[in-house]
Structures are given as C-alpha cells and as structure tokens.
C-alpha cells in the first residue's frame, strides 16, 4: 500500500455564481508523479492554487501526511513542503538568480546588523543548483532573471523547489512557451524528481508530454473529477482525450 502524501477531500470553490470546483477529491502518494488533465476552464489551476495557498476553498479538507491542515497562504503551503511552479509570475525579473532563489528564506550571516544577507552562500548554492538542473552555460548567479531565456527561468524555479526540499512540487503548465530542448529538460526533471524522493503534480495541455512522465492521470471536467486512476501504460491517448472532452472516440 503506497503512502499517501497529500489528500484534498471534497473541495468546493465558487467564483461568484460560477462553481469552479465541485466536490473534487485528489490524492498524491509519496514518490508519485500525477498528471492533472482537463480542458480550458476545467478547474485545474484553481485546484492547485488552493493546495498552494493562493486561493481558499469554500469547503473541503486537506490532509498532508495524514494530518488535517489549514493552508491560508503560500507560506503555510511552503512550510508543509508544497512548492508551486508557474510559467511566469513566479520569479522577479529585476532580481538576480541568487536573490530569487532565496527570496523569502534568505540566509543571514554575522554580524547580523539589520538582517545582513549571506551573499557568498547565496551565490555558491545558486551556482551549484544551476548545474544540477542542467544549465551547462556559465551563468553568474548575480545575473538578473530578465536576462535569461524562458527555459533558463523555468530551471531557476525548479532549482528553487529542489533546494528547499519540497516534498510535493506542483508544475502548472511548466512547458508553456518553451522550446523543444527546454521542454525536454523540464520533463527530465519531473522524471528525476521521483528518484530523488519528491512527488509531483504536472498540469499540461500536451497529453504526449504527460504520458511520457506520469504514473497516474487525473481528469477534471467542468469542476468535477471524472477519472482519477488512469494508468498511462494501460491506456491510449485517444481514450484519455475522450474522457477530457466527454465525447466518445470517433
């Protein structure tokens, strides 16, 4: 019996009169890569925003490692080991790579006068992490994010999730706007995450990508879970597509 890491139970979320999520239940096990699929507006982003503390549900419970938790904001989620990576918005383009990596969890050094930053540690760790996530080019950690390519930015966000030992890494359309090479890099990271003891939720519109890396697929349709135990090895892309759209295979 695999060990359950996170469980969201009967989550409901309204935006005004629109019900974005209707009794949605989702669970992720340790060392498991889950693909979350669904059409535009199905509620995928809403669901994971609730898990990462960016939104709050009207009702429903969240359990982490079997304990019920309240996630009121992103700090709560990070403290529980849940890290979310979005395509843009997650990094601050004016700040350097190193400053972004440690934003909100800055290492300090003595003398601590007015919370002095430990620039040496920040730069050193940043350099090491960039290598780990497969950036071969020599990029100084003091480079501002605005000078990086989309794929390099994604790598920085991923490096951040890895460094802070998040147990669950959520990627919401991480390959949007990325080139072929960079997309492969992200997918390789997701595959590698399982081996290094992380769990992942991967949201992507490209079903081929999802099929390549996940252990299990969950499908949302108009705010409801319509499938939560699809094994990509036992099914076809066409079958999953028909579940996503709700239309029979033609």
């Amino acid at each position: 019996m695999p060990e359950e890491l996170v469980r969201m139970d009967r989550i409901n979320k309204f935006f005004g009169r629109v019900q974005a999520l209707n009794d949605v239940t989702l669970s992720v096990n340790r060392n498991e890569i889950v693909g979350l699929l669904g059409d535009n507006g199905a509620g995928k982003s809403t669901l994971i925003k609730i898990l990462s503390g960016a939104l709050r549900a009207e009702s429903g419970e969240i359990y982490v490692r079997g304990n019920q938790v309240k996630i009121r904001n992103t700090t709560d989620a990070m403290a529980l080991g849940i890290e979310t990576i979005y395509q843009d918005s997650a990094l601050i383009s004016q700040l350097s790579i190193a400053r972004n990596l440690f934003l909100g969890r800055e290492p300090l050094r003595a003398p601590r006068f007015l919370d002095r930053l430990d620039h040496d540690t920040m730069n050193e760790v940043a350099r090491k992490l960039l290598k780990q996530v497969g950036i071969k080019k020599e990029i100084p950690p003091t480079t501002p994010i605005s000078a990086l390519s989309g794929g390099e930015r994604q790598a920085v966000a991923i490096a951040r999730a890895m460094h802070f030992e998040s147990e669950l890494i959520i990627l919401d359309e991480p390959t949007n706007n990325l080139g072929v090479e960079e997309t492969q890099g992200v997918l390789r990271f997701v595959r590698g995450a399982r081996d290094s003891g992380h769990s992942c939720i991967l949201i992507a519109h490209n079903i081929y990508h999802v099929f390549q890396v996940v252990d299990r697929i969950i499908v949302l349709r108009r705010g409801k879970t319509v499938a939560d135990d699809i094994d990509p090895k036992q099914t076809t892309i066409e079958a999953v597509e028909s579940i996503i759209t709700g239309m029979p295979i033609s």
């Binding site: 990094l91 601050i92 004016q94 969890r105 800055e106 007015l114 002095r116």
Partner: peptide, 23 residues
Amino acid sequence: ESKAGNWIQAAGGNPEAARARGV
C-alpha cells in the same frame, strides 16, 4: 546587503510573485 532590501526590490519588481514566496 539586507533581507529587507531583497524584500523591497521584490515588492517593487513583482508583488504577486514576492507574496507567493512569503514576502
């Protein structure tokens, strides 16, 4: 040189992303 400075720059650069990091 300080943590506050990192937060000041982050708050001005991209407040939503900064907030998401716990700033």
